[in-house]
């Protein structure tokens, strides 16, 4: 499983909670959220586009940084 790194403009606990919920709803992902640095690391077989689209559902600004 490749490990991806995303930037997500999270500003508080609530925002990281929303990211957690949308990723859990998607399933097939292992992730950890680095709130202070606004980073989300996702280990998954899903495509980057699908992961990015899911992250953007939270209404937050999100972009793909690269694989770890």
């Amino acid at each position: 499983m490749t490990k991806h790194e995303f930037f997500v403009d999270m500003t508080c606990e609530g925002c990281s909670g929303a990211v957690t919920r949308v990723l859990n709803k998607l399933g097939g992902v292992q992730f950890d959220i680095d709130l202070p640095n606004k980073k989300v690391f996702i280990e998954s077989d899903h495509s980057v586009d699908l992961l990015l689209e899911t992250l953007k559902k939270t209404g937050k600004n999100a972009s793909y940084i690269g694989t770890k």
Partner: peptide, 15 residues
């Protein structure tokens, strides 16, 4: 449930 700051409010109102 789950909103803790104004930016959550704004993103919901916006979207």
């Amino acid at each position: 449930e789950g909103m803790t700051c104004n930016s959550c409010v704004e993103s919901i109102e916006d979207k």
